[in-house]
């Protein structure tokens, strides 16, 4: 499946009700929602996933699950997003089939090339700017890395890490197909408006 250009992917955080967050993000025009909740039980994830997927379908948005390929298979999500500590993309590709979206987090060219060889649909490249959403021991890779990594892997790049209203357009100019955000939406007083504004900035 081809990813839409200038895509905004909203990732759920660890504290907000993920279904409500997804509803507001979709209201604001998000093109993709990723369910990411590391400490939830399988049952919670499944139930959230079913409800978020239904909301996404209403808006023609995509729905993917972080790490848990089992949940994605059980409720027929559009795809999965895998970190470097998750199942290899090649295994996920065999399980989910040729049409599934399989994203892989990468922070350097080597990881990106491996993801491409293993059948990833896109690479999540980051973190671009300093961020507090994830505990990152490594320094940010900056916007210049986006084009380098994209050209090496020949895959669409969804940039992640510290992206907000002020720098979103710069990230797209630097070669990203889309952006992924967590706190820019989940910590906003008005997640729908924050999403709408980000979508506007990346489509300028």
């Amino acid at each position: 499946m081809n990813l839409p250009r200038r895509l905004l992917c909203v990732i759920t955080d660890d504290s907000t009700d993920p279904v409500e967050l997804a509803r507001l993000a979709l209201e604001g025009g998000a093109g993709m929602v990723q369910l990411r909740r590391k400490k939830a039980t399988g049952r919670e994830l499944f139930q959230w996933a079913v409800r978020i997927q239904a909301l996404c379908r209403e808006q023609d948005a995509l729905f993917i699950v972080n790490d848990r390929v089992d949940i994605a298979l059980a409720m027929h999500a559009d795809g999965v997003h895998l970190g470097q500590q998750d199942m290899p993309a090649s295994a996920a590709r065999s399980l989910c089939g040729p049409d599934a979206i399989i994203g892989v987090s990468v922070s350097c060219t080597d990881e990106a090339l491996k993801a491409a060889a293993e059948g990833a649909s896109y690479i999540g490249v980051g973190h671009i700017f300093p961020t507090f959403s994830k505990d990152k021991p490594t320094p940010p890779i900056g916007t210049a890395a986006i084009r380098t990594i994209r050209n090496a892997a020949q895959l669409p790049v969804i940039a992640i890490g510290g992206i907000d209203h002020d720098n979103a357009a710069e990230v797209i100019r630097a070669g990203a197909s889309g952006i992924a955000v967590i706190s820019a939406i989940s910590e906003s007083d008005d997640p729908a408006a924050a999403t709408r504004e980000l979508v506007k900035r990346i489509r300028q």
Binding site: T41, F46, V69, D70, I71, L95
Partner: peptide, 21 residues
């Protein structure tokens, strides 16, 4: 994780009570 079981040739999956249905 039945996904990991299928991908690695393990023959089975054991679900905790709070698992995916």
């Amino acid at each position: 994780r039945f996904d990991l079981a299928l991908a690695t040739g393990a023959g089975g999956v054991h679900l905790p009570e709070s698992s995916c249905p």
